[in-house]
């Protein structure tokens, strides 16, 4: 579904990504783990067209059609089903929950479909349904994360890019969010690429995992393989 070969991205004068190779199959949950500043967020932004690609091949294949991500506008990538759920939730704080969800479907004109998607979100996250007219900024961190995920789902993603879904959340809430992501993947087959600092949680969830270090992928394997890898354990799973 997603194939990235030798991705290079430059921000300012810094070569942030220097040859990233990734492959994610349809229906999988993949995770990208690594330290601060390794290039995780930059990778996602390149995949969703928010940052220009300096080199490499990025291909998305959906329904037998392959597109070149590096040469497609961000708007068209959203249309093709790459939806980026950015770091820090980034909800529209002064708009209502319902308006936030409607904005997820900005590119769609099919009102009946949008209404259906939104009511599905309310079923999945009942707390959002109960407070649909409330300003999103008044929600708790965990509820805002549910809203951010819901907003991304309304865009009907084929490939959902999630940047640090656990950021700033209490451990118990984080588990709930990851549980919801797992359900989504199982029930609707949404393919996901999750960037996480909480490596343990991400590896437990993921079918496939990549470790990024200063702009390069240094390890990959199934989530379980990496969990059992002593080097990974040392670097990312050790206490503290």
């Amino acid at each position: 579904m997603l194939r990235v070969e030798d991705l290079h991205v430059t921000r300012g004068r810094t070569k942030v990504l220097q040859g990233i190779n990734l492959e994610v199959e349809a229906g999988e949950i993949a995770t990208l783990i690594g330290a601060n500043g390794a290039g995780k967020t930059t990778t996602l932004m390149a995949l969703s067209g928010l940052l220009p690609v300096a080199g490499g091949r990025l291909e998305l294949t959906t329904e037998g059609e392959t597109i070149d991500i590096g040469r497609t506008r961000a708007v068209d990538l959203v249309r093709k089903g790459i939806v980026h759920c950015p770091e820090g939730r980034q909800i529209f704080g002064r708009l209502s929950i319902e308006e936030n969800l409607q904005l997820g479907a900005y590119l769609s004109d099919d009102r009946a479909r949008i209404a259906r998607s939104i009511s599905e979100i309310y079923e999945r996250f009942p707390i959002l349904g109960e407070r649909r007219t409330m300003k999103a900024g008044n929600l708790s961190g965990g509820e805002q994360m549910m809203l951010a995920i819901g907003r991304a789902l309304v865009a009907q993603p084929k490939l959902l890019l999630l940047d640090e879904p656990s950021l700033g959340l209490a451990p118990q809430i984080t588990e709930e969010i990851f549980g919801a992501l797992e359900d989504l993947n199982r029930e609707q087959g949404v393919t996901m690429l999750i960037v996480e600092q909480n490596a343990m949680l991400a590896l437990e969830l993921a079918n496939r995992a990549f470790v990024i270090e200063t702009g390069r992928i240094v390890l990959n394997g199934t989530g379980k393989e990496l969990l059992d890898d002593p080097a990974v354990f040392e670097a990312y799973l050790g206490v503290g």
């Binding site: 928010l50 959203v78 704080g93 479907a105 590119l107």
Partner: peptide, 12 residues
């Protein structure tokens, strides 16, 4: 409210 998030949903 949030230009970056708006761009994520295809808002120009």
């Amino acid at each position: 409210e949030n230009e970056m998030a708006a761009r994520c949903f295809g808002i120009d």
